[in-house]
């Protein structure tokens, strides 16, 4: 993303002296105002994070109305310990949920996306639209019978059930991302050349397509990891505090009538940490891939 980002400007201002006369050239004052605004918005966006961090290190006595926004007088990790005691087991469980979901969803998405873009069958467009609709449904519309269905299949409650539902309801978005990715990056000629050489579907997919699929994998892995990690709706319908993911445990910790704000905020940070790490490490590719998919749809 970042390397391409600057490209249009370089191209524009570089070789065309005629464009030098255009009125659109930013003035120094304009630049200053622009950066000041960017900085102001940056602070506003980061404000909740500041509150979370500061409050989580305060002791119970400091959580009054006075000095709410100030740094702790005494930094203490007591609330972090309390939060970890409440969230620890579900924290580890949620990895057992989010990692398989991310991997399985991505592989299914790659296969589907490949078929729907480069190994098409008659009616592929209609099928794709039908798949895509599954992404937009309010899950309440399937939730009531879903509980009976997973019981009927005999899936153990908690994480295995949630892996199954996240994979299934993640098929539309993963298929979309891979389909759009292949449609824009894999030349049809490549597939045809493979066919002439007698390569069947699976060999083409494995040898020609998968090696090109890195960027799309990054997007679906992050997307599915984050959405299964952050999900609350499926979790509350299909699991409980003993076998469910971290959002359930956090809500139990923070949702009490008179919540312990310091512990809740430490808990909120613990809950957010893995997705934030994933995002900071891979975010650049994520935005790039996301935008590539988003333009198309």
């Amino acid at each position: 993303m970042t390397s391409q980002t600057m490209a249009p400007d370089e191209v524009r201002s570089g070789p065309a002296p005629a464009a030098g006369g255009r009125k659109a050239r930013p003035s120094p004052v304009g630049q200053l105002v622009r950066h000041a605004l960017l900085l102001l918005f940056l602070l506003i966006v980061l404000m909740p994070l500041y509150v979370l961090i500061v409050t989580s290190f305060k002791s119970g006595r400091e959580i009054g109305v006075d000095g709410q926004w100030s740094l702790p007088e005494v930094w203490t990790t007591a609330s972090w310990e309390k939060a970890w005691t409440a969230l620890g087991p579900s924290f580890l469980r949620t990895f057992e949920l989010a990692i398989p979901v991310a991997l399985i969803s991505s592989i299914i998405g790659a296969a589907n996306g490949f078929v729907l873009s480069r190994w098409r069958f008659p009616g592929a467009d209609v099928v794709f639209t039908l798949i895509l609709f599954g992404m937009f449904i309010p899950y309440q519309a399937v939730m009531i019978p879903l509980r009976e269905v997973v019981q009927f299949i005999g899936l153990p409650g908690g994480i295995p059930t949630l892996i199954f539902v996240h994979v299934v309801y993640g098929i539309p978005i993963c298929t979309l991302i891979f389909r759009n990715y292949y449609a824009t990056t894999v030349p049809v000629e490549l597939i045809e050349a493979g066919r002439v050489d007698g390569a069947g579907l699976l060999r083409t997919f494995r040898m020609l397509i998968l090696p090109l699929s890195g960027p799309a994998f990054v997007v679906t892995v992050i997307w599915q990891f984050t959405s299964s990690w952050n999900d609350y709706l499926f979790a509350i319908f299909l699991s409980n505090t003993r076998n469910g993911p971290i959002t359930i445990a956090l809500n139990a910790l923070a949702g009490a009538q008179s919540p312990d704000y310091a512990a809740s905020m430490a808990g909120a940070l613990i809950t957010s940490l893995p997705t934030l790490v994933v995002y900071v490490l891979l975010g650049r590719w994520f935005i790039g891939g996301l935008m590539a998919g988003a333009i198309k749809s």
Binding site: T5, F41, L42, V45, N230, Y232, T275, V278, Y279, V280
Partner: peptide, 22 residues
Amino acid sequence: EGVFRTVYLFPMAVSFVASGVV
């Protein structure tokens, strides 16, 4: 630019349950 973009987008990575607390 990358810093601003990353910061503006980061809340998307947080679950509503966690951001609801703050």
